[in-house]
Write a protein that binds this DNA or RNA. Structure first.
Lengths: 196, 196
DNA sequence: CCTTTTTACGAACGTATGATCGTTTTTATA
DNA sequence: TATAAAAACGATCATACGTTCGTAAAAAGG
């Protein structure tokens, strides 16, 4: 046997990415074997290498893609907002919404950093730092205008980000808590927490 | 060669646990090989099996031990405190202090849950739930007495825990931020966030 | 229609892993 | 002091892994 009827490179790569997200999210990068992944999409293990360089490359690709999209999205969500309070609200709503919709990507992006080779990790960490900086800027401006009282901007940003990102480990879109309510709860916690 | 002079089961097991914490924290459970672990403490791989049942058992042992100690410690830290506000302050201070001192255990306890076999995981999740309940109780009592305004106790507890536990990923005891300041920042964020 | 490129197969390679086992020496017990 | 238990060695097992490669069939391009 050889090339399958109806096979297309684009489709297969998309399937690899999708299955990769799923399996890494469920079992972790190290635990996921390429044999598992190949079986999931009905392929022989070796055939994967028509579409990816290495397993490590696939992981980097998934995380990098996520980070770039994340950055573009937050900039779009914050565009045109001047008031720091409004900006903080927008940040929270965006972060939660985005993370709910991409639980797998987000989870992988933070929990599998350790599985990246140093060179790859450095690139991702730099992108993540950029994202953190968006929040830091908001906090700084809010403090400068006397709206917020913040003892340490970076620590506070880390604390807020940790809180918001935490939902990825338990939130179920079909569960008891609606998205609107989730945002309301977190917005109140954070806003009231940083207010003067 | 055979049994080494001066060898003692207790010491060796302690060394295995210590090295296990270190290696799993640094590289993850799946990535850490028993050969690595054995080499770290100057043992042949097979000799580990005089002290542990399986690799999985070692992981469970480490996490379980951590959870039991955590629960005992929080109960001690909260003992005798009646006022919910005081209790919340005590919880925050305890959680941060404990987590700073046991970054490795805490990190493993949350990030390697996925590596536990279902039966083991269920046991740990139950213990973790107990810990979460300690915070839920405080929040509930504070709300009942009109001190706190909390829309959803469990969600708020998750949010607070995520924020506090987040320090494990970045805090450096020898860094810019002192422990006292760290507690102050988080206490203010949380307390002001839940206040009426 | 013919040629090139793409995509997949299936076998295989070398390596690393968790675990087992028989043996030997040291420590503890009575 | 004699005996049992504990603890380590070193060799080995079966298995699983990421990856490579020659080959064949299907798709794409002219």
């Amino acid at each position: 046997m050889a090339r399958t009827a109806g096979s297309s490179g684009e489709k297969t790569l998309a399937a690899i990415r999708e299955a990769g997200l799923d399996l890494i999210h469920a079992h972790g990068y190290e635990t996921m074997s390429l044999r598992q992944l190949a079986a999931r999409i009905g392929l022989q293990p070796g055939s994967l290498y028509n579409h990816i360089e290495t397993k490590q490359d696939l992981l980097f690709d998934l995380i990098h893609n996520h980070m770039v999209t994340l950055l573009a999205s937050i900039d779009k969500a914050l565009a045109g907002i001047e008031d720091p309070l409004e900006a903080l609200e927008a940040f929270i709503a965006f972060h939660l919404t985005y993370h709910i919709e991409r639980k797998r990507e987000v989870f992988i992006g933070s929990s599998e950093l350790r599985s990246l080779e140093p060179k790859n990790r450095r690139k991702i960490v730099a992108l993540r730092r950029s994202y953190e900086d968006r929040l830091c800027t908001i906090l700084k401006q809010g403090a400068a205008r006397g709206l917020f009282k913040i003892e340490d901007v970076r620590v506070s940003a880390y604390a807020i980000l940790a809180m918001l990102t935490g939902i990825c480990t338990w939130y179920d879109a079909k569960g008891r808590i609606g998205q609107r309510k989730l945002i309301a709860i977190h917005t109140r916690l954070v806003l009231q927490g940083v207010m003067k």
